[in-house]
Design a protein around this nucleic acid. Structure first.
Lengths: 349, 349
DNA sequence: CCCTGGCACTCTCAAAGTATGAGTGCTAAG
DNA sequence: CTTAGCACTCATACTTTGAGAGTGCCAGGG
């Protein structure tokens, strides 16, 4: 554990705040002037020297001021940061955006857009995992002789659809019948449970199973396997905000970063990981463990629907970001979003 | 109309091809050497001088070679370009990508991804307008007391869903009944016709209309108005490919460009416009009419499903792109995509 | 009349030199 | 422990210089 004198802490805090605000390496004199410190630049230099030994700050080169290291940011965030309450303006903006429309998908998407607008960074929202949602209805629709459209609806209003190609051909009424079987058999279960039941049904000896039921199971199983959970479960917006930061103007890295936004793989892992703990989480630079997010920080917070954590909202930006402001915004957004998505018993009061 | 001597045309062609290949202003000597011309650099300079007067090429500065202007590219594309047949490799790659899966949404998305991969530019695909698709089924599902999930399925397998908030509360069976009314009344119509019918039904005096039917009409109408056609009708991919082009490394412009990709508004207009004419269309630089696409070119081709133009595929890149190659690729992609989406009578042969 | 070699000229780019200023580390005195 | 002072370092900006690429124009030759 790093332990610093109160003075050193104060200095580090001032330095990081100054650097976050200006983006330039900050020197001893500037720091004294700007932070109104009651000791001299020389003293500041001595303290800075200590901080540098701790690995909290570093000089980009011999005679430029100091810049926080990732470790410095981490210490700052852990020990020095006083999260300010949000301005009423921001609060009302968040609330306004999240109440505008109630369609879950739209809500999630607009949450992402809102995050990027307010923070001027990239906003990300992890869509609730379908596995946890409750099963509501399954539909089979015949599109052509060999193509059947399967529509799966969960209780929270999410709709998943996929075209499958069953080996055998089915009439419209057969399809209807199959759907009915499922809808009565699986009513009220979670999608995860439904999936388990399907696998179990498949493994059971099928001799005594109605031919129809068996086909239905096979069809439904096709829906549940293969890529089902990868169905665009992530909203990203405001990537272009990141182009404004000079520290990210390295084309090579920028490209990596944008590829990561497109592939979504890394981000998904990160968000899923963040979903397991509660409250705001912050990944500074390499802490995220993803090459593509080097020199970026990610601030996330899981959100709860009806008391259960189902997804995560977050923000991606350069390590030099206003952590206090971003943290509040992400935190509040997660709360509001959860609230807006929850099934209030007094639903339409 | 610009008319050039054959020699000047040949020279312009060589110059533009050289510039497209290298990205550097091309001088008289390089041109002679590279294109194997049988006259001297001095002669080339004289001709270049003429071409410059025509506004087909220009010098970035006094002593750099010449660079094509937009007008030059336009002339090149119109009169000089010999579209090469595609390499078998590319052909098979396109075909492979577009046959991999048959789900229409996935197909469109993978077409966009494939375009960006093969051209190393940004790929865009305009999703078929729902208005033209045939109506297949409508479903009302009650999510909670005041929220009803409406699922609309078109004959091509597209699924549209939206949550509405009817004023009155309905039981599950009432909802079912309403859906039945629609499904029988509107079977086989196009969505556009369905919409017209709904509006007409609303305007008709409702005294003699069953209360239930009336509510159903109102509900369905809610689905069809408000944002329905704006439902993400555009796939964009490979934006990050554009980061690799030095001519687009101006952060300000880059940002504009990426915002255009996100907002999708300008692109949509452009693609819709391109849908009205047939065959490959090319917008060079300012020709597109959109500020954000300045110094970019867009190559598009509409695709047909069952003989009707329903959407557009395209590619966005810097004005300096391999038009011949890109044109073939976009053209072929449009054809394959249309084919893959069409309902072959021998559907599952 | 068109082509070509030659030549002066222009302009960018890169390298090298120079000044400047911000900032440091160290030391010695308070 | 703090502070003032001083020598030192180094990035940055500016200038100079030379090289190289390329042009425009002219005058001679087919």
């Amino acid at each position: 554990m790093i332990s610093l004198t109160p003075r050193a802490e104060r200095l580090l805090k001032a330095l990081i705040e100054q650097y976050i605000a200006e983006g330039q390496p900050v020197g001893s004199r500037t720091l004294v002037r700007q932070a109104g410190l009651e000791f001299s630049p020389a003293t500041v230099r001595n303290i800075m020297s200590d901080l540098e030994e701790f690995g909290l700050i570093r000089s980009p080169h011999t005679s430029a001021g100091r810049v926080p290291t990732e470790r410095g940011y981490r210490f700052f965030v852990n020990s020095l940061l006083a999260v300010k309450p949000l301005y009423a303006l921001d609060l009302s903006r968040i609330e306004g955006h999240l109440l505008a429309d109630q369609d879950p998908q739209q809500l999630l998407e607009s949450a992402s857009g809102m995050l990027s607008q307010i923070t001027k960074l990239a906003g990300i929202v992890r869509v609730p995992r379908r596995t946890q949602a409750g099963f509501l209805q399954l539909d089979f629709l015949s599109l052509s002789a060999s193509r059947v459209l399967v529509i799966l609806v969960s209780q929270d209003g999410q709709v998943l659809n996929r075209v499958i190609h069953p080996k055998k051909r089915y009439s419209a009424s057969e399809l209807q019948q199959a759907a009915n079987i499922f809808n009565s058999a699986y009513a009220g279960l979670s999608l995860e449970e439904v999936k388990r039941c399907l696998v179990a049904a498949l493994e059971r000896d099928s001799e005594d199973m109605q031919q129809m039921l068996r086909s239905a199971v096979e069809m439904a199983h096709q829906v549940f396997t293969d890529g089902e959970f990868a169905d665009d479960p992530l909203f990203v917006s405001g990537e272009s905000n990141l182009l404004a930061f000079p520290e990210l103007s390295n084309m090579e890295k920028l490209r990596q970063l944008f590829d990561a936004f497109n592939a979504k793989q890394d981000l998904l892992h990160l968000l899923d990981h963040s979903m397991s703990s509660s409250g705001v989480q912050i990944f500074i630079g390499a802490e995220s463990g993803y090459e593509s997010l080097a020199s970026c920080s990610v601030v996330t917070a899981p959100y709860e629907v009806d008391g259960k954590v189902v997804g995560t909202v977050g923000v991606v930006g350069p390590t030099r970001m206003s952590y206090d402001r971003v943290i509040s915004i992400v935190d509040v957004t997660a709360r509001f979003l959860g609230g807006a998505l929850s099934h209030d018993p007094a639903d339409d009061a």
